[in-house]
Computed example of a mutant assay.
Amino acid sequence: MAQHDLTAARPEAYDVTAAGSGAIADYVAALAHELRRRSDREEILAETEDHLWLATDQLAASGLDPYAAERAAVERFGRPELLARTWTTVPTGDRPVLAEPAATAGMLGVGVFLVSSLVYELTAYSTTWNPTMFHVWSVVAGIGLLLAGAPLLSLLAQPGRRALGPHLVVGAALLVLASAWYVAGMGWSYPIPGTVFGIVAALALWRSRGSRPWLAVAALAWPIGTAVYVVGDVLNLGPMDRYYLHPVLPPVVGFWVGAVLMGVGILAVALRLRVAAVRAAPQVATAD
């Protein structure tokens, strides 16, 4: 596919109903302008053009005049500025194959992590200490934390590549480390796995073009929770633990501040991924 001249003036408002011969070329040119800041623009344009010609061939085969088929294919694709907005939420330079499952895994993971933590704490404060139950819920929380990081891994995928990129590999390794910390029964020292999770979110924030405010929330969640813990502990806020001679509330409050902020950030990112996947579904279906 030829390179597109992006130095030209912005195309006039695109009117698919007025398009005749050359409708696809006009559409791709308009889309090129909307995507002018994306490094993977040429791949998107080539794929879009291929889909449009495939749809045109299918419509022409059904009996439409070739020019009418071209116009119909363009109309079905939607306005270029709307399609461009879809691509700004897509985490990779390719179609978002893993965006929807990553979003689903992230939402499920947040729920599992929060619920397992809540059940354990309620049980721990209402009954006698049970090491077996502690380890079971720690394992569940570790699995939840790993799933919660799935949207971050989707954002770390290399643009325009099928193979795994170094950012994705590093992010996955860090998430496994954070999860293993809980699985090993050391969730009580949550600032450590929380910091590791925050590093992955910060890496996704650096790599991604979309969801940046919510990625920032996910990245800062555990540092904020840890700060609440440390300040409360230093100031001896709340009742004291008679065994460890430290206040009881700061670590609990700090954990839930970090957990809730992380959950809010990840859920928002996951919802954006799901919207991007749904919007791109017609394009994927055409390609298939």
Rank of each mutant, 00 (worst) to 15 (best):
H33E: 12
R212D: 02
A172I: 08
V139S: 02
R71E: 01
E70V: 01
V269K: 00
P151T: 11
A32V: 02
P193C: 09
R207H: 12
Y244N: 14
Y27T: 02
A68N: 08
Y182E: 00
T89D: 15
V269N: 09
H4A: 15
A23Y: 03
P282S: 04
S126H: 10
V269M: 06
A184P: 15
A173N: 02
I224T: 13
T123I: 12
T48W: 07
R95I: 01
V260E: 09
T7L: 10
L122R: 03
A46S: 12
F113Q: 11
V196M: 11
P250H: 00
A29M: 05
G194D: 07
G258E: 09
P250M: 12
A221C: 05
A72L: 06
F113K: 04
F197V: 10
R36V: 09
P91G: 07
A105F: 14
D50N: 12
A23M: 03
Y120N: 02
L175T: 00
V119M: 03
G185F: 02
V260L: 10
L145M: 15
W256R: 02
W87D: 01
V260D: 05
W188P: 10
G149K: 07
V28E: 07
R209N: 11
A184H: 08
Y229E: 05
I266M: 10
H51Q: 15
S126L: 08
M186H: 12
E34A: 13
G210L: 08
L220Q: 07
L82Y: 07
L245M: 14
L237F: 08
P251R: 06
I143L: 14
L122K: 00
L82P: 11
S117G: 13
Y120V: 06
L98Y: 09
A61D: 13
H33G: 00
A259D: 00
T7I: 05
A19W: 05
P166L: 06
T123K: 10
L237M: 11
A9V: 07
V136W: 08
T92D: 03
G144F: 10
S116V: 02
